[in-house]
């Protein structure tokens, strides 16, 4: 296991029903869809494996009921996987005792919930200070830390408000501040913005990007919204009926969707912002490196589209040292931009 892997999931199954463990045993740990539906079990997560690297933002997407929440809940052990293994910082999370688990959650994990999960009977300050309170920190210390977090999410001055006195966006800020108060290594967010209306959602996304720039945490983020995903993600995983169908960079996903289901997700993606020039160029066949002028390969195609579309022939693509690495013509550009040839 490489050093920069923070979380390693292998062959996770989560089956809901009367006797999940017995059911899995009867089917050699590989039940198929018929077996599940015949015996009335729900395969919320089916044979999912992936790694989360240190410092990356991994986004999990999928339709409602595809098992996104369940997979995150397996990693945080809010649900115990039926079978499979989860390693966190190299240690077997499923073997962790209740006590160890509490320790891990207290110091290594932070989580933001879709419906905020704020404590209705506590004001902003003591909601944010809550994780520190359960750790047994002194009041002065935890309030100082909480105040810092409240400032960070821009709620300074509202410490004494109760959740129901705040708007949805503000409540989620409290949720974020609370999850950050313990300075976790890994930050889980389960559709943190989907209960908010579009304007506030986009504001919160910007806020989130700002925070992540400062904090550089490992993040597992769930969303319904592909646009949101491309705005934030290093890598995207798409789930369908409990399977992880594709896990790759947004660019790869747009260009090479694994199947129609994934393609459907990427259909309305802002390709001009996601795809880089070097991903769609025709690589040069020249052996010797040659300097030249042209568009830079790591730019997104949106940024160079005008230049390429307005020129008659192919345009050179260069790397950061101005060495020509390939070329791109109008036809390729159009295809990349609109997902099909011709206009």
């Amino acid at each position: 296991m490489s050093d920069d892997v923070q979380i390693e999931c292998r062959n996770i199954w989560k089956v809901f029903g009367a006797d999940p463990a017995g059911f899995m045993r009867r089917h050699n740990n590989q039940p198929d869809t018929e077996a599940l539906s015949e015996e009335g079990y729900i395969g919320a997560v089916r044979d999912v494996s992936f790694d989360v690297h240190r410092g990356e933002i991994l986004i999990i997407m999928g339709l409602s009921g595809s098992g996104k929440s369940t997979i995150i809940r397996c990693i945080t052990r809010l649900n115990d996987p039926t079978i499979g293994s989860v390693r966190f910082d190299g240690r077997d999370l499923l073997a962790a005792s209740e006590k160890e688990l509490i320790e891990i959650r207290r110091h290594k994990m932070g989580m933001v919930f879709q419906n905020f999960g704020l404590l209705p009977h506590r004001d902003v300050m003591s909601n944010v200070a809550f994780p520190l309170e359960v750790q047994g920190l002194e009041r002065a210390e935890r309030e100082a830390k909480a105040r810092e977090m409240i400032e960070l999410v821009g709620l300074g001055g509202r410490e004494s408000y109760f959740p129901r006195e705040l708007s949805g966006g503000q409540q989620q800020r409290v949720g974020i501040a609370r999850s950050l108060a313990v300075e976790p290594d890994v930050w889980f967010l389960d559709e943190p913005f989907s209960a908010l209306d579009p304007l506030i959602r986009s504001e919160m996304q910007d806020e989130f990007i700002r925070l992540q720039k400062m904090l550089r945490k490992t993040i597992v983020f769930i969303t319904h919204d592909f646009e949101e995903a491309t705005k934030l993600a290093d890598r995207i995983g798409i789930m369908k009926d409990g399977h992880l169908v594709q896990l790759s960079t947004p660019e790869e996903m747009v260009l090479n969707p694994a199947d129609d289901y994934v393609a459907e997700f990427t259909k309305n993606a802002p390709r001009d912002r996601i795809v880089s020039v070097q991903a769609i160029m025709t690589p040069t066949r020249a052996k010797a490196p040659k300097k030249g002028t042209g568009v830079e390969g790591r730019l997104s195609i949106g940024e160079v589209a005008e230049q390429v579309l307005n020129s008659d022939g192919p345009v050179n693509v260069v790397d950061k040292d101005n060495i020509v690495v390939g070329s791109i013509d109008r036809k390729r550009m159009t295809k990349a931009l609109f997902g099909r040839e011709g206009v």
């Binding site: 905020f116 999960g117 704020l118």
Partner: peptide, 15 residues
């Protein structure tokens, strides 16, 4: 009690 609230309690490391 809403499951969110309970789960956030768990995630904050409540005994």
């Amino acid at each position: 009690v809403p499951s969110d609230v309970v789960e956030s309690g768990h995630m904050n490391g409540c005994t």
